[in-house]
């Protein structure tokens, strides 16, 4: 029997101010010198759309954009990206208008359980930003670091292609806060009754 080891988890140095722009807003949070970006985003900034899947860089659920480039937030030290511009899945939509990539993942089956979706979305958005008409090989290379267990990737690749199409045509995603049906429909308030009906 070997001697047991004990790697102490506490105490750590006092927290320091960490500052970054997340989805366009300036955040200053207290974080440890050793804090991981994923933890700061989830536990302090509150962008819970950034998911913790494997926490080891394989699944890609935690991907965010740092200055527009996809990065695994689970393997990034928070202080290494201090002062940078961070985009999470929450920052993709323009108000209630979904980003085309969001719209297409929803419409074409790119998302089933949805847990890996935020990672796929930011990675794909970054790809389409640089290359609005990517080849299938380029799409596969871009998402090779993201793991999806539900879809078998096929509908994800389709979603990305469709989103590229939307972007190239200058379309944006729809805004569901607009009424889906006419709120003030034309026509009579009263029922239309059969001719000669006594009521």
């Amino acid at each position: 029997m070997s001697a047991p080891i004990h790697i102490p988890m506490v105490p750590s140095d006092p927290m320091e101010a960490w500052t970054a722009r997340v989805n366009g807003a300036q955040f200053t949070e207290l974080a440890h010198s050793h804090s991981i970006l994923l933890d700061v985003l989830r536990d302090h900034v509150g962008t819970l759309g950034v998911k913790r899947g494997c926490d080891m860089g394989t699944c890609g659920c935690c991907a965010v954009l740092v200055d527009g480039e996809p990065v695994l937030s689970c393997l990034t030290l928070a202080f290494e990206v201090e002062g940078k511009e961070i985009t999470t899945v929450e920052g993709l939509a323009d108000g209630h208008h979904l980003h085309p990539i969001q719209q297409c993942f929803a419409d074409h089956g790119g998302s089933q359980c949805g847990f890996c979706t935020p990672g796929f979305l930011v990675v794909s958005a970054a790809l389409l930003d640089k290359e609005p008409d990517p080849s299938e090989a380029a799409i596969k290379e871009a998402i090779e670091g993201n793991l999806c267990r539900c879809t078998g990737y096929q509908q994800i690749v389709t979603s990305i292609q469709e989103a590229g199409e939307m972007l190239r045509n200058g379309l944006t995603g729809d805004d569901r806060t607009e009424a889906a049906s006419d709120p003030h429909p034309v026509g009579p308030d009263e029922p239309t009754l059969p001719p000669g009906d006594a009521r």
Binding site: T47, L48, G49, V50, K51, R52, T88, V89, E90, L92, A93, L98, Q102, Q103, F105, A106, D107, H108, G109, S111, Q112, C113, G114, F115, T117, P118, L121, R176
Partner: peptide
């Protein structure tokens, strides 16, 4: 038919187990 909850998922607003705070 797109899943009725897909918009929660693509906007990051779907709350999974660890998102309940």
């Amino acid at each position: 038919t797109p899943l009725v909850d897909s918009r929660w998922k693509v906007t990051g607003q779907a709350e999974y187990g660890d998102d309940i705070r």
